[in-house]
Simulated scan of single mutants.
Amino acid sequence: MSGSSNREHDPDDGADVDRQAAEWFALLLDDGATPTDRANFRAWLERNPAHATAYAELERLWLGASALPEVARPTSQTRRKILRSGGAFAVLTIAGAGSAIYLRSSGADYQTGIGETARFTLSDGSLAELSTASAISLNFTAGQRQVILQQGEAFFTVAPDVSRPFIVDCGQLRSIALGTQFSVGMHDDGIVVGVVEHTVRVSSPTQEQDVQEGQSVLFANGKLSLPTQTDVGTQVSWRDGKLVFISTPFEDVVAKLSRWRRGKMIVMDKGLARRPVSIIVDVHRAGLILENLEHGLPIRIARYSPWLSLIYSQ
């Protein structure tokens, strides 16, 4: 792949920057890269600081390093030497050991690691179910029950207590349970609150909405949406050990699946990225996500390390 016309533009979409960086990475890993390719690559790096950042992230994932390396020129020879000398096995070992590491969220009372879910009984008898890579902290007093969602997503089944409201704070968003079952999740497009049973009062610094059973709201860019009818059961299907996607753009599927495994997956084909797919993924087999995608969809996956995979149309 050479410096083609699609690199002559600087799309604002971060996914496009990641895609371009991955194209250069794959090209420069190949012995067939020409001096013109390298010159075009340097020009691409210098065009936008986001390009250098995205490329450095791919280098880090390839090498299994904990810090971003300096990006001055491609190091394809170094990468090939690492691969040929058994470096890929070292990265695999690091990735395997890392899969058991829990999040270290500051002040978290309950948390899960990547690819894990867990259910906790709180001191008031309420249940908190945490999705992958999630963390909450508690502040229960005589006057209120406050939960702070630090990251990820949580589903709550609230024990009745008329004297102490059950509150979930997530950034600028506050959710007060007026019923029993609801979820709060931090997603790429904002904070989502979905209600399974009864009502939740959701408020931002400037807005407030009562969200009814079977509805959800989105808080993004400082604005709270109107409640919309939602298949909340599908939205929180991770509670039953699966992720359900119905006619979902493939790039959105990959983004959500990325939360369940270590490493980065990049969809390289824009047409493939936009293609709607329907698929059910077993979260208890998160380590086989790539294999399941490859067997179930017309795609090809190039695995550069356990930390980096590029997805192409077949």
Rank of each mutant, 00 (worst) to 15 (best):
E291G: 06
G263Y: 00
K270T: 05
G271Q: 14
A302W: 12
Y304P: 09
V254Q: 02
A255N: 15
S278D: 04
V277T: 05
S278A: 06
P276C: 05
M265I: 14
V283D: 06
R285W: 08
K256R: 14
R274P: 11
L290H: 08
L272F: 06
I311S: 09
I301G: 07
P276D: 00
H284Y: 04
V281T: 06
K264W: 12
I299Y: 08
L308M: 06
P306Q: 00
R303K: 04
I301T: 12
L272E: 11
D282T: 01
P276Q: 00
S305R: 04
R262F: 04
I311N: 03
V281E: 10
N292Y: 08
I266R: 03
A255P: 08
V254E: 05
S305L: 01
V281W: 10
R300P: 13
I266C: 09
L310A: 15
V254A: 07
L293R: 12
L290G: 09
A273N: 00
W307P: 04
A255I: 12
A302S: 14
W260E: 08
R300S: 08
E291R: 03
L297F: 03
S305F: 00
W307A: 10
G271H: 15
P276R: 13
S258E: 08
M268W: 00
S278F: 02
G296N: 15
G287V: 02
S258T: 01
A273D: 03
E294V: 01
I279D: 09
L310W: 15
Y312Q: 15
L310T: 14
V267D: 02
G287C: 06
M265H: 10
S258N: 11
G263S: 00
G287N: 02
D282N: 04
I301R: 13
D269T: 02
R303F: 05
A255G: 13
W260P: 03
G263L: 00
R261G: 14
M265L: 15
I311Y: 05
L257A: 01
L290F: 05
R259M: 06
R285T: 02
K270E: 03
L288P: 02
S309Q: 06
R262V: 09
Y304I: 02
D269P: 01
G296S: 14
R274T: 13
V267W: 01
K256P: 11
L308E: 07
V283F: 09
M268Q: 04
D282L: 01
Y312E: 15
E294H: 07
R262W: 00
D269I: 02
I280M: 10
L308D: 09
